[in-house]
């Protein structure tokens, strides 16, 4: 074996990655070649030296810190899922909000305008203060209509 080939394989030999046969060839070459023996010694010393690099211990609160980062992720999916979806969809969320507010405002204004048109403005303030949604007006439904039957059943004791 030539020195060039021996030196290329020396690195693999020092890592115990050569087959038994190849390792014996390298050992044979080193025992006969002073230069390659010196090279093997220098490489071995350098590799032994770097292995002395100190180690560190994980901090005692490693798991505590890690679990704080992981568990909220899990919980967010269940506990804050709805809120997160709302934040992620600002346009549909804003449209739904406007629709609900518009509907409530429409009920109120519709009733107020109706009472005003009938010339009984005192009832507007009175009804508004007592019942924003004018639910009392449901009492006026004809008793044999579907709505009337439903109200009767719903409030039956």
């Amino acid at each position: 074996m030539k020195c060039k080939e021996a030196r290329r394989r020396l690195s693999i030999f020092l890592d115990n990655e050569l087959s038994q046969k190849e390792a014996l060839e390298i050992k044979g070459h080193i025992s006969q070649c002073v230069f390659c023996a010196k090279e093997a010694e220098a490489l071995s010393a350098a590799l032994g030296f770097i292995k002395e690099l100190g180690t560190i211990e994980p901090p005692l609160d490693f798991w505590d810190n890690l679990s704080k980062k992981i568990i909220p992720q899990e919980e967010r999916v269940f506990s804050y899922g709805f809120f997160r979806r709302v934040v992620q969809m600002p346009v549909p969320a804003a449209a739904s909000f406007i629709l609900v507010v518009g509907l409530l405002l429409g009920i109120y204004l519709g009733n107020a305008l109706y009472l005003n048109a009938q010339g009984d403005s005192s009832k507007v303030a009175e009804a508004g203060a007592d019942n924003f949604f004018y639910l009392a007006s449901l009492d006026d439904l004809p008793s044999d209509s579907v709505g009337g039957v439903y109200i009767k059943l719903a409030f039956q004791k």
């Binding site: 690195s11 020092l14 890592d15 220098a42 490489l43 350098a46 030296f49 770097i50």
Partner: peptide, 20 residues
């Protein structure tokens, strides 16, 4: 990997020769 480690070891040997 053989080639990476070969070059790395040569570099380490050179770098550490004064300490060894």
């Amino acid at each position: 990997i053989e080639s990476l480690l070969f070059r790395a070891k040569q570099a380490l040997k050179e770098k550490l020769k004064d300490y060894l």
